[in-house]
Amino acid sequence: MKKHLLFFAGLLTVVLLAACGPKGAAPTSLEDTPPNHYLRGMELVDAGNLGEAQTRFARALELDPKYAPGFAGQALLAALNAGALPAGKDREGATDAFRALLDKGYAKAATPAEKFIVAVTGVRAETAAKDARWIQAVEKWDAKGRVIKDVDEGALPYYRNVEALQFFMGKAWFEAGDYAKAKASLGAVVGTDVGKWHRPANDLYARIQKIEQAAANYTVTGVSWAIAAKDSVSRADVAALIVNELNLPKLFGKLSAAEPKADFVPADVSGHAFQVEIVEILKWNVRGLEPTYNATARAELFLPGEPVSRKEMALTLEDILIKVSGDESLATRYFGQDNSPYADVKPTEAHYNAVVNVVTRNLMETDLSGNFRPEDDLDGAELLLAVVRLRNAVNAD
């Protein structure tokens, strides 16, 4: 909490000092311009380097105290800070502050392009902060952005083109759980010529389609929809969904006359919301979800909150297939191949066989370039789709 408050206090101090100056500072080089510092600041925000981004936006305002995108950048930082604070007066104050910065930026905007920058940033900021009325605020900025005419896209150093507004509205609706509106906004971007926001819009649109396709066939909706929109899923999420959706006790119960017992229950599982499901996974020694030794704790832990990578999910899916089918040859079927169908997975890697098994059985997919992305975190949509496809493959009921 103190870290967030100190960051926010420093941010406001820099903004106020820059805004109060009657004249801008003299540039020290050809690159020392407000648009350049604003662009670099936004790139730093995307990279998660908020402290350096703050410095860049502050310099933009030092050079031009009326530079609207500088206020917009500062507002986005303040909104990210607000979203990270717990409910209470500090969060309310941070929310009021970033909205004041947005309003100031919009009032000082000298061109349609600058007004557009503030409007799009308003959508992003409200989505990041998510207070009780964030959707209404998002719609307000969307309406402002849509009526701006004659936007010079060459004067949008970061956003580049006007499709940015529809992309970030699509993200907002996605995070609000309104997939129909999200697809409507994203579809307008996907249908345009390739530009900066075409690829991310296409990726998010495809993700929504996966969620809808998988969730339409789910029975445990309370669990599945809570997981669906996650950017990454945890080991506990995977355990819960597999156990509940595949009815694992019944599915695996057919394989053994006597139900096995977990060798032990890791200390970090006791009291967890998904303790029952995790213990069920441990009973059957499902590969990819085994406990691992933690040197700090000096104990075998399950690490329920750790994200699951795509290669780990491939190992888990393969192991369930092997257990249900009884076909042990699946575990080595593709080892020894000279060439891999995937540029980012070598035939000599431990997860290679599992990756080929799950892709050829349509349990998981490659991206448009044919890469499997083994090290990437598995997202909620991918998890839903993989488990529902596995359920159909093993005839779980």
Rank of each mutant, 00 (worst) to 15 (best):
G222A: 11
T121R: 02
W225V: 05
N36F: 06
T192A: 14
D131H: 03
R146S: 12
N202S: 14
W197V: 00
P27C: 06
D319S: 14
K311I: 01
I278N: 07
L204R: 08
V286I: 15
F174E: 03
A393S: 11
E349Q: 13
E300M: 15
A354V: 09
E300G: 02
I281A: 04
A257T: 13
D178V: 13
P22G: 06
V14Q: 15
A257K: 14
E126G: 07
N357M: 11
Y179N: 10
N161I: 07
L44A: 01
A381E: 09
M42G: 00
A206P: 01
W141E: 02
D96Y: 00
H351L: 01
R333N: 00
A381Q: 10
D268E: 10
V15A: 14
T127Y: 06
L368E: 15
V356F: 05
V269Y: 03
N36P: 00
D237M: 08
T111Y: 06
T127V: 13
D327P: 04
Q74D: 09
G145S: 08
A119N: 07
G170R: 02
K210Q: 15
I211M: 12
A94V: 05
K140V: 13
A184F: 08
R199G: 08
F274E: 10
R391D: 11
A113F: 07
S185V: 01
